[in-house]
Nucleic acid binder design. Structure first.
Lengths: 320, 320
DNA sequence: TCTCATTGTGCAAACGGTTGCGTTAAGGTG
DNA sequence: CACCTTAACGCAACCGTTTGCACAATGAGA
């Protein structure tokens, strides 16, 4: 049915090994033979079978990418960049989604392990211990999680969170809330560590929360009750949900409460109010993660973040 | 290094074929032996090598999913559902992105063809002829494209577009524009065919346009100059860009011009104005596409769409 | 007691490539 | 002219599984 290396060999009267070499080690075969083989291969529509190849070489030419939630707009740009980077180096990319479930995350890594050369694990929810164990079975790089001995690319969300809080203090806010993310999120912990104890700021932590719009809506009541004038949300989805929830309760944003998101992931600039947020270089992260994997480098890369001030923040009520 | 079927066989004193059968045909092996083998496999952490398996069976256990643009919010829910459906049937999913480039689309199909059992091709930009040729090489199912002989799942965008236009006429609009999509988009053609010649409506077609926010912004000038009071845009991204572009020109939405999008893909409900749009069952489409593929059924499935009226549409100026 | 199924396993040949090694012929050197 | 090197290619084993077939053991029926 499918055309194999043998068909090509037969078609131009050479041995299969010669055909194999024209593809995997072209310099080892005579120029004239090579063109003949290539012509025959083209003619027959030959495409090497990667499964067969991987059997002897031990390399599959595939990578895996695992994210917490494909529907979270934070991830698609990362996936897109990762896919482009992979394809640019002749790798194919498996993509999967854990639905924020650590057990599923582990299963996926294991399921992928035999058919990929490496895995990009984004925003893992697994414990460090579990991750360490998995790292022995299959090379991977972590995105938005630090773990010693494992290549990592993280975005400097701590810096972003601090900048966001400084923006709030600069506007005159003193009592603020941090609406944190899900348990198991390293990013959420980073943000918390970064902002607790910042001078001139009294911070209430609310959470853990689902990293979704619903999570934000659900957190609105506690935020409204907390007597704060500013909020930093775990991500843009939560921020948006929070704004919705607050406005349902008659709390105006940014009139009564200022809200800052994280990720700058919301499509379209037509929000009301336009969201002040911490921009994350997600595409860079995706690209770098697969580069690290392919070149099997072990590095800890930190990507910069920056605050984008839009309209969801303002001075607290009563100030000029 | 990796633990193979031979290790397991040796560990419990049976032949490799017995081990193989305990996994692929459990009923053929004695219950006691089976438990012994399973125990040893578990103990050693054995995972069958899919590449090796696919070599003899001819099936890979992988599927491919190709979309026009991963960053277009229309696709992630579809991908998420497709991935979940695939995983539920023990398939793994390659995901790739053509960046709206037909040549890349073809290359991807060919590149995938040897290592997947089938491909889901979403919103293809290839010609029918090219698609027909590819369909001979590898089974696939088309999403949002009709092609005789090829299994298909389409969303009834024609109906959605007509409903949208009826909504506009119901509000009193007479002169409207259709801001169409990219060349090669079947959906765009469907929309156009559906709305041209609708009674009581004079429709200007503007396009082709890139299916992005930028495309919408770029189309704003022509829309503003067309003397229309209502617009149906190719998708939500275009609609949003269009609204931005119009407002930059001092044209208010929906005050001066009503705008309807398609897809209902925009995250968050905080837009100003909230977008009236045609909702598409993208998740259903993703799930059904992989089901069709896995069960290798050849069907033409049509999914319903419906109009979601929000705030970007209103009666034309001068009417009560 | 002698077939004859039936059940559970082992054996070995594939599947489509890769790769170390052996062979051949051509060219270079003394 | 004998020898050695080198380039180009053929040969065959191997990668990890599956699967048709052969074989042995068991139990049932005659």
């Amino acid at each position: 049915m499918a055309v194999t290396i043998r068909d090509v060999a037969h078609a131009c009267g050479v041995h299969v090994s010669t055909v194999s070499r024209t593809f995997s080690a072209p310099h080892m075969v005579n120029a004239e033979t090579r063109t003949r083989v290539l012509a025959a291969a083209e003619e027959l529509g030959y495409r090497p079978n990667r499964a067969a190849r991987s059997l002897t070489t031990g390399r599959t030419g595939n990578l895996g990418l695992i994210v917490a939630d494909l529907a979270n707009p934070f991830f698609p740009p990362l996936i897109k960049a990762a896919q482009a980077a992979a394809r640019g180096q002749d790798y194919h990319l498996f993509v999967a989604d854990t639905d924020e479930d650590p057990a599923e995350e582990q299963d996926l890594v294991l399921a992928f392990s035999k058919q990929v050369d490496g895995i990009v694990l984004c925003s893992p929810r697994l414990s460090n211990k579990a991750l360490g164990k998995l790292a022995e079975a299959i090379p991977f790089v972590l995105v938005n999680r630090r773990l010693r001995g494992v290549p990592t690319v993280v975005m400097d969300v701590a810096h972003g969170a601090r900048t966001a809080m400084e923006h709030l203090t600069g506007l005159g806010h003193r009592r603020v809330a941090l609406v944190s993310g899900p348990a198991g999120s390293w990013t959420s912990g980073e943000i918390r560590r970064a902002v607790t104890g910042m001078p001139g700021l009294e911070t209430t932590v609310i959470g853990p929360n689902a990293p979704t719009e619903k999570g934000g809506i659900a957190a609105a009541e506690q935020v409204a009750a907390a007597g704060v004038t500013g909020v930093l949300a775990y991500n843009d989805l939560v921020a948006i949900g929070l704004i919705e929830g607050l406005e349902e309760r008659g709390v105006r944003v940014p009139g009564d409460v200022s809200v800052i998101g994280i990720d700058d992931s919301i499509t379209g600039r037509l929000h009301r109010p336009k969201l002040t947020t911490v921009a994350m270089p997600t595409a860079d992260a995706g690209r770098m993660a697969v580069d690290l994997l392919v070149k099997s480098m072990s590095a800890a890369t930190v990507l910069e973040t920056h605050l984008v001030v839009r309209e969801s923040t303002a001075p607290p009520k009563g100030l000029p």
